[in-house]
């Protein structure tokens, strides 16, 4: 038995799955985008027509805009998570307990979260509007049913869901800041706030950059929560790229065009991954 035989035996099953179920499909997605295809009948080659249509499809670009907006919100909310993490590491008793409580929503399925928040946002009986009524607010918003508020309302459960995850990451990173450095600063008379902002924060900048990439690229892929909560509605107000693709394919049977949308989603995601990793890398070089 040679080493080559064993290496093949050990890597081939996983590699085959990876190629057949991930790499071949993304190539096929680009190829199907060249077709007029309803999903069941024959495919008809139509060249770049789908891609040309995609370029001038206002609905697609609106949904891409929503995805990016969610991405920007998500990155901004990282600051909130970071602030909470800084509080958690400042010798708080029970920080372990808090950290675990915060993480609980992250463990639930997006469907359960979506269904729960559908009830919270319920215009007449939901927790949110009942709370507002208790404070004397009249004409409470209808949240998910209003095109002006739907996307922002959806962002609330997203913050709720991911808070614990990012706090966990920041907490772990902050715990890794060497105690001697903090002690030295304290002896030199630095206040806890100064220690947090001028010593701890710069020391975890690498981790912070990774989380920017995670949340930005993750936002571009949002689907489950939005699909269940609004289906992209009302009137496309909360449509994102993945939900637009899904609707075109599995509800309208435009499989050819939907494949082009899916390929567009792939290109945008990979481009953003590359861009953010490049930006964060060049910053690193400047710093050290």
């Amino acid at each position: 038995m040679s080493n080559k035989y064993i290496i093949t035996l050990y890597t081939l099953p996983a590699l085959l799955l990876l190629l057949v179920l991930i790499y071949v499909p993304i190539a096929l997605s680009g190829y199907y985008g060249l077709m007029d295809w309803t999903g069941i009948g024959q495919m008809q080659f139509i060249g770049l027509e789908n891609y040309a249509n995609l370029m001038k499809d206002e609905k697609f670009w609106a949904s891409a805009g929503h995805s990016f907006l969610l991405g920007i919100f998500s990155v901004l909310s990282l600051l909130l998570y970071l602030a909470v993490s800084l509080v958690l590491v400042s010798k708080i008793k029970g920080s372990d307990f808090f950290r675990k409580i915060y993480l609980i929503p992250m463990l639930l399925s997006s469907v359960a979260i979506a269904q729960l928040w559908l009830k919270i946002f319920d215009p007449s009986n939901g927790m949110l509007n009942k709370l507002l009524e208790m404070f004397g607010v009249e004409n409470t918003p209808v949240w998910l049913a209003d095109p002006n508020t739907a996307l922002y309302a959806i962002f609330v459960p997203i913050v709720w869901q991911y808070a614990g995850f990012y706090i966990l990451i920041y907490y772990a990173a902050l715990k890794n800041v060497p105690e001697e450095i903090i002690e030295a600063a304290r002896i030199d008379g630095a206040t806890p706030l100064q220690i947090a902002l001028k010593i701890k924060l710069p020391m975890i900048s690498a981790v912070f950059k990774v989380t920017i990439m995670l949340s930005l690229v993750g936002s571009l892929k949002y689907f489950d929560l939005i699909y269940v909560m609004t289906g992209g509605g009302p009137n496309g107000a909360s449509e994102v790229m993945a939900s637009y693709m899904y609707k075109e394919a599995f509800e309208l049977n435009n499989f050819g065009y939907a494949s082009a949308v899916g390929f567009g989603l792939l290109v945008i995601c990979l481009a953003m991954t590359w861009l953010t990793s490049r930006l964060t890398k060049s910053n690193d070089n400047v710093q050290y």
Partner: peptide, 16 residues
């Protein structure tokens, strides 16, 4: 493979 959005593979997978 970790970076690839699974939604882009969905239609080809469905067809497969």
């Amino acid at each position: 493979g970790y970076m690839i959005p699974l939604h882009s593979t969905l239609i080809p997978l469905f067809n497969f």
